[in-house]
């Protein structure tokens, strides 16, 4: 194992609607880390996650994947990434089994047995043939979480993974996190609830809030010639 961190953020800054959400984030995510991103509503937790997966532009700083800028090693980075956002990606017209089969097969090769086994793991046994329309929001999210049992990606980025789960489900998910990081993976997630996990690293966005007039100063700096 090399000592290069899996993902490294250097002076990351994001601007949304002409407002600086956070600035100067320096952070290292090593394999074996579970990182919980904290901050009040509107502090940019989801934006930070979307920035990490390259679906939102950061206007300053850079991100390194195993020591290389993410934009240069995009293919490797995305191959090793599993993202579950607010939207579960579950189709209303497909059954649970078809949905999971579709999502999993975009990233690898999985047999029907593996897919069914993953559904059992998230407590959807007996729901394999139920069509998306009839699933509750929680059940849809659990289909998305079932992808965690079917992936080889090392970096998991999860937006509010606990929302649809009961205490037992949360316990099981945390066990999975621990298992994953013990095998050299890393997990980054956001959550409102305090986590029961003992070795969670925390990244609080409150620490990276900009000063009031920061954006204007930046503009001045750029235009100063």
């Amino acid at each position: 194992m090399s000592i290069v961190p899996l993902l490294e953020l250097q002076q990351l800054q994001c601007v949304r609607d002409e407002r600086v959400l956070f600035t100067g984030i320096d952070y290292m995510i090593n394999s074996g880390d579970i990182v919980q991103i904290e901050g009040p509503n509107g502090s940019g937790k989801t934006t930070l996650l979307r920035t990490l997966i390259q679906l939102f532009p950061h206007d300053e700083g850079q991100m390194l994947w195993q020591g290389h800028p993410v934009s240069h090693v995009r293919y490797d980075f995305l191959s090793d990434l599993l993202f579950i956002g607010h939207l579960p990606g579950v189709k209303k017209t497909l059954t649970s089994r078809e949905n999971l089969n579709f999502l999993a097969n975009l990233q690898g090769y999985y047999t029907a047995e593996q897919v069914d086994e993953a559904l059992v793991q998230v407590g959807l046994y007996g729901y394999e043939e139920v069509i998306g329309y009839q699933l509750s929001a929680g059940q849809s999210r659990r289909i998305a979480l079932a992808r965690l049992y079917l992936t080889q990606a090392r970096l998991w980025i999860l937006d509010e993974p606990y929302t649809a789960l009961d205490a037992q489900g949360i316990g099981k998910l945390e066990m999975l996190f621990i298992q994953h990081v013990e095998q050299g993976g890393a997990v980054i997630f956001t959550s409102h609830q305090p986590s029961n996990l003992s070795n969670v690293k925390r990244l609080s966005l409150l620490d990276y809030r900009p000063q009031a007039s920061h954006y204007e100063m930046q503009e001045e700096g750029v235009d100063d010639y």
């Binding site: 997966i53 995009r74 995305l78 993202f83 607010h86 939207l87 990606g89």
Partner: peptide, 12 residues
């Protein structure tokens, strides 16, 4: 609307 477009874009 269901988020699968995101997942398609996140393929390498």
């Amino acid at each position: 609307e269901d988020g699968s477009l995101e997942q398609l874009i996140l393929r390498p």
